[in-house]
Design a protein around this nucleic acid. Structure first.
Lengths: 98, 98
DNA sequence: CCATCACTTTCCATAATGGAAACTTACCAT
DNA sequence: ATGGTAAGTTTCCATTATGGAAAGTGATGG
């Protein structure tokens, strides 16, 4: 192999890549905002978030404000690091010279 | 959805993304070079190339030079366009602001 | 105590990958 | 012509990934 692919499979999948990209740009985002932002069903979003959480890339904060229970997601330092590295690797690939 | 994902599934898959990246940087590449560059088996490389060819992104040229038969791959104009668009979209996602 | 909201999990059906092994072609040697 | 080998191709089979619908959970309002 020319260069061992540093593409993180947890981040590379289209849906999760979008989630990470969205979370990387804000402090926190509501579950529903992410779900609609990515355009998937509740179940799918929940599953993607679980994978990201298991990887330590996303932090989940359940808040009960004004009687309303909402889930807020944020990217962790590890998540940001992994995302940045992933983007960097994509950039490297895109500008690759054989 | 905030922005409809313009990620081309044919190009996004890690293996094919690497193939496209490699082909985007050269005029032509030999099958074996690509296979080793990406680090997959003959069968997998063959199947990825078939998908890229079916999509019109890669051109296959079978050449018999000096008694040796080799397959040369090159990216087509459509392939380059799709790859560039894909990279552009990845860049957009990476710099996304919610 | 029951209904509802906001996710979570389970269930199920596809689609995507991957490698090994079998198969095909072309070309060289005999 | 016939056999052998190189270079891919296809087939076979096993995993894994996705996705949505539907059922399940826990907290909250009435």
């Amino acid at each position: 192999m020319i260069a061992p692919p540093m593409l993180d499979p947890v981040i590379h999948a289209a849906g999760r890549l979008q989630i990470c990209a969205l979370l990387a740009s804000v402090d926190e985002a509501e579950f529903a905002v992410l779900r609609d932002g990515v355009g998937v069903s509740d179940s799918v979003m929940s599953k993607h978030l679980k994978q990201l959480e298991d990887a330590g890339y996303v932090k989940v904060r359940k808040a009960t404000t004004m009687g309303r229970q909402r889930t807020w997601l944020s990217i962790t330092p590890a998540g940001r690091k992994a995302f940045d590295a992933h983007v960097k690797e994509l950039t490297r690939l895109a500008n690759l010279t054989l």
